[in-house]
Design a protein around this nucleic acid. Structure first.
Ligand SMILES: Nc1ncnc2c1ncn2[C@@H]1O[C@H](COP(=O)(O)OP(=O)(O)OP(=O)(O)O)[C@@H](O)[C@H]1O
Length: 721
DNA sequence: TACTAGGTTGTTTTT
DNA sequence: CAACCTAGTA
């Protein structure tokens, strides 16, 4: 009897078609849980078994975790058919990792030094802030964030023109980056695009997962890589596009056929993940979006349990109710790691952590404040980065006086003076003869140079060990306060992480390098790395964004309240509401068997208790699939409504601007077409049309340099001409 | 230069 | 409710 082929069995006809159609452009559009990722994995294995050399295939995933899992699965499939493939030979990774890898190897061709440093979002903020300060622009957090917002939108292709002063800021920013031999996240993509013609010959087959969340730069990169052979396979679901705030757009998925001539399209319509009730409810919800391609989805699975909804008094009760349900499911045999709480914002994790800890249930919080974002860890990393690239001014400024060595503001000013137009590192060298600060600077320079020398010939753990030793940070062990103890623990943990990295590399027959370590932590989020005691089952706490592509038996969705789910802020638009709905759709479709949705009647926001109202999405779910567990119950006291304090309205704003209220509002429409209005984020613009009345009216405004947006009236201020 | 108290400010989502 | 920044003092 012949055994089933592990690579081609367990696929329905369209899936099979997608797996075996290896030549030419192919697009797989399909709803959640229809096996898109499975298709990609099988396809890679299929091609390799047919003789394609593994390193001729490039597969792009959305996260590093997804990349690792895909690599593992491909390896397993091939093993079962007797093909052995060295793991490292496969190019399966994120756009950013691919870019970084290419840049390391071929960057010199386009003027990027081999030892470039990767700047993260924080480094970017620091640098932009400094530039804005030098330009005498307002440089408080708000303005800096706004500047970065525009600059990034422009760079990733979602904003067509960049106006003053942002154009100048960007120009200066870019020149500072290149002087510092640094590349930021978007820079990685920009450089990769530049490099594309030089590297396109490396691959014959390109595959992309989660194609609906590709930005312009990424698409262009793929387009250029595919030019020689046209073998591109993209899979995605426009209803799951949830990263538009990062410049991603489903446009490239929609336009695929136009961009790649002769493209075939395969649709997958059967969902294998969830029960009928879940599929039906999620499908019903997403139907409320107007800008989407209609799509069929069905399941052979039974309806299953209804979707449970409950409203609790506040977020702590919400958490403890959910935790009780977890205990029940666990008692009935559902493993803890098959349960997940998926929330809108990281701050929502708090009450769940408290409650789980109280019940003694192990849990993992994915994301949130990451290990590598802690101050003491960033300090150490700054030292490590300097060891490879001393031209990175940001890193010098970060650690020059850490630990305190008497080099404060005045010293920095002097070093800047001496550096002139050149890097601070140059300034430091010249400052070694200064009367007062000279000796301390000499000491610092020596430290960095010694670390640099070590990095050349010793493994990364030795370099870190040297820095810890020299800075005597671990000496703080002596201090007894909790804070310094955890600091020291964190530093030791970093040392352990470096050592793990080196061991891992060695076991793969590679030489561990500091460069490699720094890269792995710059691009790989902490939770990707931490494989901490895998043998303990733990429930998952994470944002919906982080849950993309995952699945769990039992899923809990807390916080379905207006302003939170859907998230609504001053700059919310019709489009952003639709993205919120897609987010809710993604959240619901993570569940295999049981789905709970809850809300809190009151919630603490910024230390005040606010009254909430139920999410509009609840009304968009089909009644017959939902079981409502809550009974009406009035609140005893009288907290402010969310609307009353929206965006600090009553704290900061003039009376002339009222905040929005979902209960409707008394005043008549305050704006007419032609009026000039101001918006906090978009600036001034002219009213095109008004839909509805009162503060809740939707006003279409044409903003200068930005274009048309639909804004809720309450977020606009009239401007007298 | 280092430290502390007090005021203010804010939050999506992440490679 | 934090986390962060600023200004004033040791
Ligand atoms: N033909 C099939 N037979 C049985 N199970 C399948 C089949 N195809 C996919 N599955 C299962 O369905 C589930 C969803 O598959 P997969 O994660 O590949 O879907 P997806 O389309 O990528 O989902 P999403 O877009 O929601 O991330 C997985 O558990 C997978 O093993």
């Amino acid at each position: 009897m012949e055994a089933l082929d592990p690579i081609l069995s367990g696929l329905n006809p369209p899936q099979l078609e997608a797996v075996t159609t290896t030549e030419g452009p192919l697009l797989v559009v399909a709803g959640a849980g229809s096996g898109k990722t499975r298709v990609l994995t099988r396809r890679i294995a299929y091609m390799i078994r047919n003789g394609v050399q593994p390193w001729r295939i490039l597969a792009v995933t959305f996260t590093n975790k997804a990349a690792r899992e895909m690599g593992e699965r491909v390896g397993q499939l091939l093993e079962r058919v007797g093909v052995t493939v060295p793991v490292q030979s496969l190019w399966i990774s994120t756009f950013h990792s691919i870019a970084s890898r290419l840049l390391r190897r071929y960057g010199t061709e386009i003027g990027v030094p081999q030892n470039f440093t990767i700047y993260d979002a924080d480094d970017q903020k620091t640098l932009v802030k400094r530039i804005m300060k030098d330009m005498n622009l307002e440089n408080d957090a708000l303005h800096v964030r706004q500047a970065i917002h525009y600059i990034e939108a422009y760079r990733n292709g979602s904003l067509k023109a960049l106006y003053p002063p942002y154009d100048t800021i960007l120009e200066k920013y870019k020149s500072e980056l290149s002087a510092a031999q640094a590349v930021d996240f978007t820079g990685l993509l920009e450089k990769a695009l530049e490099l594309a013609p030089h590297v396109a010959h490396l691959w014959d087959y390109i595959l992309i997962d989660e194609f609906q969340d590709t930005n312009h730069l990424q698409f262009e990169f793929i387009h250029r890589l595919a030019r020689p052979h046209g073998n591109v396979c993209a899979v995605g679901d426009d209803d799951q596009s949830i990263y538009s705030w990062r410049g991603a757009t489903p446009r490239f998925l929609i336009e695929f056929e136009r961009q790649f001539s002769g493209a075939r399209e395969v649709r997958l319509e059967q969902n294998y993940r969830s029960t009928g009730n879940i599929i039906s409810a999620a499908g019903h919800l997403i139907l409320h979006n107007t800008t989407r391609r209609p799509k069929k989805i069905w399941t052979a699975a039974p309806s299953g349990e209804p979707i449970y909804f409950n409203a609790l008094d506040d977020e702590r009760q919400e958490a403890s109710w959910i935790v009780s349900r977890m205990l029940e499911h666990n008692a009935r045999g559902v493993s803890l790691d098959e349960m997940a709480v998926l929330y809108r914002i990281n701050a929502q994790s708090r009450p769940f952590e408290d409650s789980l800890r109280r019940e003694g249930i192990p849990y993992t919080v994915v994301g949130g404040t990451k290990f590598y974002e802690r101050a003491e860890i960033k300090d150490l990393i700054a030292y490590l980065r300097l060891a490879l690239n001393a031209r990175s001014d940001i890193d010098i400024l970060r650690v020059l006086n850490k630990p305190k060595r008497g080099l404060g503001q005045a010293a920095v000013r002097r070093i800047r003076e001496l550096a002139g137009e050149r890097s601070l590192w140059h300034g430091l060298h010249r400052a070694r003869d200064e009367r007062r600060i000279g000796p301390k600077i000499t000491e610092f320079v020596r430290l960095v140079e010694h670390a640099a020398a070590l990095a050349e010939k010793r493994p990364p753990e030795d370099v870190l060990g040297f820095i810890l030793e020299e800075t005597d940070w671990l000496g703080m062990r002596a201090s007894t306060d909790i804070e310094s103890i955890t600091r020291v623990e964190n530093m030791n943990e970093l040392l352990a992480a470096v050592t793990d990295y080196s061991d891992e590399e060695r076991s793969n027959g590679e030489e561990p390098t500091l460069q490699g370590f720094l890269e792995s932590i710059a691009l790989v989020s902490a939770e990707d790395l931490s494989e901490d005691d895998e043998d303990t089952e733990k429930v998952w706490l994470m944002t919906v964004h982080a849950a993309k592509g995952l699945e769990f038996d039992v899923v809990f969705l807390p916080g379905w309240e207006e302003k939170l789910v859907p998230m609504e802020r001053e700059d919310s638009t019709e489009d952003s509401l639709e993205e919120e709905r897609r987010l809710a759709y993604v959240a619901m479709t993570r569940a295999r068997r049981v789905l709970y949705i809850t809300r809190a009647r009151e919630r603490m926001v910024y230390g005040r208790t606010l009254r909430t109202s139920p999410s509009r999405f609840l009304k968009e779910l089909p009644r017959d699939r939902i079981k409502i567990l809550s009974r009406r119950k009035p609140v005893t006291h009288d907290p402010e409504t969310l609307a009353e304090v929206a965006s600090h309205a009553h704290r900061h704003r003039k009376k002339s601007v009222k905040s929005s209220s979902y209960k409707g509002s008394s005043s008549n429409s305050p704006f007419r077409p032609g009026d000039v209005v101001r918006h906090k984020k978009f600036g001034t613009g002219r009213v095109v049309s008004v839909d509805g009345s009162g503060d809740g009216a939707r006003v279409t405004v044409n903003f200068r340099g930005i274009g048309q947006k639909v804004i809720v009236a309450s977020y606009l201020m009239g401007v007298d001409r």
